[in-house]
C-alpha cells in the first residue's frame, strides 16, 4: 500500500512539475467556458445539457494528452527499469498511475463548477440533472483514461500512444452513428451499446442507469486488467 501510494504521489508531482497538466486543464477550461457561454447565454436556457455534450467530445480529444505519458514516458526515459523492479505487483503500479490520472480528471471537472454560478444566479437549473451529468462525465473520463493507459503500455513512443488512444476513443464516441446504416438489429444494438456518447447522453438527461455506470466501469476494469497483464507478460 505504501509503495502504491508513493507511485501515486510521484505521478501527481510529475503532472504538476511538467507543463502538460496545466496545458490540458487550461485548454479544457477555456473550451468548456466557451461552450458554456455559447450554450447558455445565446440560447437563454439554464441547463448544462449542451455544455456537457461539448465537454464530452473535448474530453475524448484531451484524454490522450494525459494518458500518453503514463507508461510510454517511463519506457522511453528508462525509468520503467526502476518502476518495474520495485517491490510492487504490476497491478499496483497500474492502479497508482491510473488514480493519478483520474485525480487530474476530477480536478479539472471540479474547476468547471464555476460555470454553475451564473446558472444558479440567473435561473433555476435542475440540480439532480447537473449532478447526474457530472457523474457521467467522470465515469466517461475514467473509461477513456483506462483505455489510454493501456495503449501507453504498448509503445515507447508517447505520440504513437496518443494517436492510437485518440483514434480508438473517437471511434467509440462516434460508433453510435453506424446504427443508422445497419439493417441487423444485433449490429444496431451492438453499436449503440459500444457508443460512449449514447451512454453519456443518458447521464446528461439526468438518468443514472446502472447499465451505463457498469458499462464505463467495466470498460475501465478491462483496460486496466489488460495493462497489468501485458506488463507481466512482457517480462
Amino acid at each position: 500500500m505504501t509503495g502504491t501510494l508513493a507511485v501515486y504521489q510521484k505521478e501527481l508531482a510529475s503532472y504538476f512539475r511538467s507543463p502538460i497538466a496545466y496545458y490540458v486543464v487550461a485548454v479544457f477550461l477555456l473550451g468548456t467556458g466557451y461552450f458554456f457561454l455559447y450554450n447558455v447565454f445565446l440560447t437563454g436556457e439554464t441547463t448544462m445539457a449542451a455544455t456537457f455534450q461539448n465537454m464530452g467530445i473535448l474530453l475524448v480529444t484531451l484524454v490522450p494528452v494525459i494518458s500518453m505519458r503514463l507508461f510510454s514516458a517511463e519506457f522511453s526515459a528508462g525509468t520503467a527499469e526502476l518502476l518495474l523492479t520495485l517491490p510492487l505487483e504490476p497491478w499496483q503500479i497500474v492502479v497508482a498511475k491510473y488514480l493519478g490520472a483520474v485525480t487530474i480528471l476530477v480536478l479539472m471537472t471540479a474547476a468547471t463548477v464555476v460555470d454553475l454560478v451564473p446558472l444558479y444566479l440567473f435561473g433555476t437549473p435542475e440540480t439532480t440533472t447537473i449532478l447526474a451529468g457530472y457523474v457521467g462525465f467522470v465515469l466517461l473520463g475514467m473509461a477513456c483514461l483506462a483505455l489510454g493507459l493501456f495503449f501507453s503500455t504498448l509503445t515507447h513512443n508517447q505520440i504513437v500512444a496518443a494517436l492510437i488512444t485518440a483514434a480508438v476513443l473517437l471511434g467509440l464516441w462516434f460508433v453510435g452513428h453506424l446504427q443508422s446504416f445497419q439493417r441487423s438489429d444485433a449490429l444496431r444494438g451492438l453499436f449503440g451499446y459500444l457508443s460512449f456518447a449514447q451512454h453519456f447522453t443518458d447521464f446528461i438527461q439526468g438518468l443514472v442507469r446502472t447499465e451505463a455506470v457498469a458499462f464505463y466501469l467495466v470498460v475501465a476494469a478491462i483496460a486496466l486488467t489488460l495493462s497489468a497483464g501485458y506488463l507481466q507478460w512482457r517480462r
Partner: peptide, 14 residues
C-alpha cells in the same frame, strides 16, 4: 535488490 540500470532511471521533473 538495489539495481542501478545502465541508464540512470531518473524522473527529470522531480
Amino acid at each position: 535488490i538495489g539495481y542501478q540500470p545502465e541508464r540512470p532511471p531518473l524522473y527529470d521533473t522531480l
